[in-house]
């Protein structure tokens, strides 16, 4: 086949330009450190990259939620643990004062102590986490427990449970129902009894020298302690569950980050090597081009 000068020139030009283009692509890879620089580079890969990035952002959010949940439960736990101590003290007083031995002074201080315990218990029930009351249900910007001068308690919260999403497949419900937490079922089958009412009744019994009344509170206080124990156990279970989810999320995060990196992160060593190769190929193309143009018949004619 005849080969003409224009053919040679154009072909050489194309080859040089192609080599230049490949060099440019290799440079881009090294400069950005990324394998995929546009959806058209690798459409399916791009989809995966977007998916992985979404997942990572979701995981970060779940971790935030879990941190919040754990703080909440830790605050609740501290409050309830202290409440337990207060109730133990109340029960001890009840036991002490329920004997026949009557001493007006100790009686008086017992009443004072019980009043103090009542108020401290109220503080615990009005615990806050970052400005919101944790035992007020959904009405968490209003103090849930208030008492009057006769130590009657009122609860202004509601029964709302705080939901929390800790992973794509699971949510947690935090028990914020102050009313339910600080009350027990009546063993006699009547309406539920508020813990605060127990203390109020103890105080009243002490004031009235009502030995039977005092004695009645002792088992009830025991039931309260058991009930609080149950609540704390439940919270503890939630905490455990969150911890396990957190650990799991950590592993998932690692996997996703690895997959993302494999896909998107240009292996620097091989990218630089490729750059070298393309550079060499480009120089070879240029050199070949210069040789092609050197000679024609005219060089040999006189």
């Amino acid at each position: 086949m005849r080969v003409t000068d224009q053919q040679i020139f154009r072909s050489t030009q194309n080859d040089v330009l192609t080599a230049r283009n490949r060099l440019f692509e290799a440079q881009k890879k090294v400069a950005t450190g990324r394998n995929i620089n546009a959806p058209s580079d690798d459409p399916i890969g791009m989809k995966k990259v977007l998916g992985y990035e979404s997942s990572l952002m979701s995981i970060t959010q779940f971790e935030r939620n879990i941190n919040f949940g754990k703080s909440w439960i830790q605050t609740a736990e501290q409050s309830l643990a202290h409440a337990d101590e207060l109730l133990t003290e109340a029960r001890d007083i009840a036991i002490n004062q329920s004997s026949q031995h009557f001493d007006q002074d100790t009686r008086d201080s017992a009443i004072k102590i019980v009043e103090g315990l009542y108020d401290q218990l109220m503080d615990m029930a009005n615990s806050r986490l970052g400005g919101s009351f944790i035992f007020a249900g959904y009405n968490n910007e209003t103090q849930p427990f208030e008492r009057d001068s006769d130590y009657n308690i009122t609860y202004t919260g509601d029964d709302g449970a705080l939901g929390l999403r800790i992973s794509e497949n699971s949510t947690i419900s935090l028990n914020a129902n102050g009313e339910e937490i600080f009350q027990i079922d009546d063993p006699g089958g009547g309406a539920p009894i508020s813990v605060f009412d127990l203390l109020r009744d103890l105080r009243t019994a002490l004031q009235n020298d009502d030995l039977t009344g005092i004695q009645d509170q002792i088992p009830l206080l025991g039931v309260v302690k058991d009930h609080l124990q149950d609540v704390r156990a439940e919270n503890s279970g939630q905490h455990l569950r969150m911890g396990m989810t957190e650990a799991h999320l950590s592993k998932v995060r690692l996997n996703v980050e690895n997959s993302l990196s494999d896909l998107q992160q240009a292996d620097m060593a091989s990218a630089v090597l490729e750059l070298q190769m393309e550079q060499t190929a480009y120089e070879a193309a240029l050199s070949a081009a210069s040789r092609v143009f050197q000679q024609s018949l005219l060089d040999f004619l006189n």
Partner: peptide, 29 residues
């Protein structure tokens, strides 16, 4: 291709993720 290219950050995919995250933060408080 450029319009849909998020490799340098920004873009609809990350905007969606941030949007849902903001709703979760609101759910926490």
């Amino acid at each position: 291709d450029i319009i849909f290219n998020e490799t340098e950050g920004g873009g609809l995919n990350s905007a969606f993720s941030a949007f849902w995250g903001a709703w979760q933060d609101l759910a926490n408080n």
